[in-house]
């Protein structure tokens, strides 16, 4: 396990899956159409499911199949379906939204990826190559999720950014051998709870302000000052 490196199939395939997730993160960052954003998120979650199962096979760890199954069912199918439904209910299907310019967000994203590689690779000298590359990719996905949360304007896409961030966390968790299943399960439950809370929040925000733009919240806050 420790000596799996470049050129060996377990390493290459895991690396490929992580790369795909990172690519999808960049797509999320620049995608303006909300329904396409949800689809991209679903694709990222499905990739995560595959990556978890692959790690389960490589590490011979049956618990990771459970993680993969959760990722597939909850994040790959259930959450995107619910998001699409609420999108339809809010009459936002086909809506586009304003965001930071594509070049600027791409440049920032690339800078964050470089940063995460520069942080992770030197600090994890003792770990195996697979773990190190995986952690660097996962941290990149997390940072890109954060970036998406701050570059987007509506609460809807901010929620998606948050959940994409969580995908990065799970990717890191499955890449490290010996991470107990209970941690992954609790993170998954946390995300589901977060999803429910966000859903309720979005619904109320829509009924009260007829908008999902979080800047209306700032106006309310400044009125209450």
């Amino acid at each position: 396990m420790e000596h799996i490196g470049f050129g060996a199939l377990p390493y290459d395939f895991a690396h490929l899956l992580g790369g795909v997730m990172l690519l999808l993160s960049f797509t999320l960052l620049t995608q303006r159409r909300i329904s396409a954003t949800i689809a991209t998120y679903a694709a990222q979650a499905l990739t995560l499911a595959v990556a978890a199962c692959w790690q389960g096979w490589v590490q011979n760890e049956p618990a990771l199949y459970v993680t993969g199954a959760i990722a597939f069912v909850a994040k790959g199918v259930f959450i995107p379906l619910m998001l699409q439904r609420s999108l339809a209910r809010l009459h936002l299907r086909g809506a586009r939204e304003e965001a930071m310019g594509i070049f600027a967000s791409m440049a920032l994203g690339v800078a964050l990826v470089v940063l995460s590689i520069m942080v992770v690779l030197p600090t994890t000298m003792q770990a195996g190559a697979l773990t190190r590359e995986d952690l660097a990719l996962a941290l990149s996905v997390v940072l890109l999720g954060l970036l998406m949360m701050i570059t987007r304007r509506t609460a809807f896409t901010q929620v998606i950014g948050f959940m994409s961030l969580e995908n990065g966390l799970i990717l890191a968790a499955v890449g490290v051998a010996g991470m107990p299943l209970v941690v992954e399960l609790s993170v998954a439950v946390l995300v589901l709870v977060g999803f429910v809370v966000f859903g309720a929040f979005l619904k109320r925000m829509d009924t009260h302000f007829h908008s999902l733009d979080t800047s209306v919240l700032d106006q309310v806050a400044s009125e209450n000052r």
Binding site: L143, L146, L147, M149, I150, R153, S215, L217, D218, S222
Partner: peptide
């Protein structure tokens, strides 16, 4: 009294 996005940006900036 920061706005939501400012608060998020501050956190991300600190992390980065």
């Amino acid at each position: 009294f920061m706005t939501v996005r400012q608060a998020l940006t501050l956190m991300v900036a600190l992390l980065v």
